[in-house]
């Protein structure tokens, strides 16, 4: 079973997948707890639009997708702070517009349905060495930041007005969160596709929240669940689509966690 990892694309898939899942899970906890779950979904649609446009123009996909998704993340997290436009409708407008632009761009460039499929559902074969480097740097940054600033991250996530009153630079943390989420989405959507990347962000955090009683517990459990479901999903997928299998593994874990959470709380 393990000799499938003698192929370099499988090695890349495993390294990038584990690291991106880890980042998605850690950042996902912060998004889910602040009721920003749909931001991951919105960003992945923006990523799809950017990839399609890049393909239509003949530009390198990542050089277009990365800045566009980062810009969208700043916009969405910024909008949620001011109350002029409600965050959820802003996300809906942005994500469906991006999806429409992507489909039109793909059609104008004479792209086939299989190209679209690759973007929508990911392809682990498409991973390159540069993705490995980006995911290693990204995960190092995320883990170091969580280690150094865990108290501040908790204070900002739990209660933004209080953190502001205590002199924490809340805006800086929001922008940093937007930046890291955007990079996670862009790297992750190559593995599981734009349609499924948001599940890597939301599922592990949600599962962990059903059981863990402390913030620290949620963070650790979310990271563990995310990495385990990715590896199991990838291994059992063999002939099936890996991205979808990973999401289904996450769904199973969520169901189990919810049941355990209910049983434990009843006692």
């Amino acid at each position: 079973m393990f000799n499938i990892f003698s192929y370099s694309f499988m090695q890349y898939a495993l390294i990038v997948g584990v690291l991106v899942s880890l980042c998605a899970a850690l950042l996902g906890v912060l998004l889910v707890l602040r009721r920003y779950s749909m931001i991951g979904d919105g960003l992945s649609h923006v990523g799809f639009g950017a990839l399609s446009v890049a393909y239509a123009l003949g530009a390198a996909p990542m050089t277009v997708a990365v800045p566009v998704v980062i810009a969208a993340a700043f916009l969405l997290l910024g909008l949620s702070e001011s109350k002029k436009i409600k965050g959820d409708s802003a996300i809906a407008v942005l994500s469906s517009s991006a999806l429409a632009i992507g489909v039109v761009a793909n059609s104008m460039a004479g792209g086939s349905a299989s190209d679209l499929g690759g973007y929508l559902f990911g392809s682990i074969l498409a991973l390159k060495k540069s993705d490995v480097i980006v995911s290693v740097i990204l995960s190092l940054v995320v883990i170091i930041l969580f280690g150094l600033f865990k108290n501040r991250i908790f204070a900002v996530t739990f209660d933004m007005p209080f953190a502001k009153s205590a002199g924490v630079h809340v805006r800086f943390y929001n922008l940093l969160l937007a930046l890291l989420i955007a990079i996670t989405v862009v790297v992750g959507m190559q593995i599981v596709g734009t349609m499924l990347i948001s599940s890597l962000i939301i599922f592990p955090a949600l599962s962990a929240m059903q059981i863990a009683e402390s913030f620290k517990g949620v963070i650790i459990l979310s990271a563990v669940i995310s990495v385990v479901t990715f590896v199991v999903g990838l291994l059992v997928s063999l002939t099936l689509p890996a991205g979808a299998m990973i999401v289904l593994c996450n769904l199973c874990v969520l169901v189990v966690c919810t049941v355990i959470g209910k049983v434990v709380k009843r006692k």
């Binding site: 707890l33 739990f158 620290k216 517990g217």
Partner: peptide, 19 residues
């Protein structure tokens, strides 16, 4: 969002020192 936040009481109280 705060009312069902998974944090221990000690974590919340301790975060008062953040400033």
């Amino acid at each position: 969002a705060q009312r069902d936040f998974p944090a221990s009481v000690y974590e919340v109280v301790l975060s008062g020192n953040i400033g």
